[in-house]
């Protein structure tokens, strides 16, 4: 897909890729743009336009790697955005997915033990994901902010590299969950209920992968470089 530029209409962003709806909300941007361009809306909301473009383009094109732009602004800005995304997952997406899963469970007439196992597995996945988000919010992000404020390496060492491994583990569980449902679960449920649940789950997977990509490729890469410089 073609990348967005600052002179593009803000409305074209959503008509071209509606998955960006929650992304612009995280910046505090809401619908009703009239004919305003991306740059105009960003200015109004006091958002760094380059930063905004780098984020939406990361969601739009998987191979997009905004090195130059991202180095020009502080990772603190990025961390704010990532934290907002975590809140969106915790307060909105996960409760919604859970509600839809409960509807699937309720639609099962009998022999629902397999479906209950799926539910148990989902709970396990959710617990792990929440732990990961918590680790980032409470340990990793404060560590990075501190690093940039004080410009000295912490005596306890860095725990930056731990995250990438965690991302893989969380991603594997979600893909296992999807495969269990799509390939191995006998369909003892109401189809519409399952379709709604599965659609929400798959959409969440996409969003989460993009989110992890921003963390691994942009945030972590940048921090590792910075740590190297401090060591000199």
């Amino acid at each position: 897909m073609e990348l967005f530029r600052k002179e593009d209409k803000m409305s074209s962003l959503i008509t071209r890729n509606y998955n960006l709806l929650p992304v612009i909300n995280r910046f505090g941007i809401r619908l009703g743009f009239k004919e305003k361009t991306i740059a105009e809306v960003c200015q109004e909301k006091k958002i760094d336009t380059d930063f905004f473009l780098a984020i939406v383009n990361t969601y739009t094109d998987e191979s997009y790697f905004p090195e130059a732009e991202f180095l020009s602004f502080s990772p603190v800005l990025l961390i704010d955005y990532l934290k907002n995304t975590h809140k969106y997952y915790i307060n909105y997406v996960l409760p919604k997915i859970e509600r839809l899963l409960n509807q699937v469970l309720q639609s099962c007439p009998e022999n629902c033990s397999s479906l209950k196992m799926i539910n148990t597995f989902y709970q396990k996945y959710k617990t792990e994901l929440l732990l990961h988000l918590k680790l980032e919010d409470e340990k990793v992000f404060p560590y990075i902010i501190n690093l940039y404020e004080n410009k000295t390496l912490s005596a306890e060492g860095s725990f930056i590299e731990v995250i990438e491994n965690e991302h893989t583990n969380v991603e594997v569980k979600l893909s296992d969950l999807e495969n269990l449902i799509i390939r191995h679960l006998s369909p003892n449920y109401e189809d519409n209920a399952m379709n709604e649940f599965l659609t929400a789950l798959l959409q969440f997977e996409n969003d989460l992968n993009d989110h992890a990509r921003i963390e691994d490729h942009i945030l972590i890469t940048q921090v590792i470089e910075f740590e190297k410089e401090l060591k000199k």
Partner: peptide, 22 residues
């Protein structure tokens, strides 16, 4: 064959297919 990698995912598969009792 199954598209399942994690230990907990394989456990769920085993129980769903009666290879194992809960």
């Amino acid at each position: 064959k199954l598209g399942i990698k994690s230990i907990s995912g394989l456990t769920v598969y085993a129980i769903m297919n009666n290879l194992l009792d809960i």
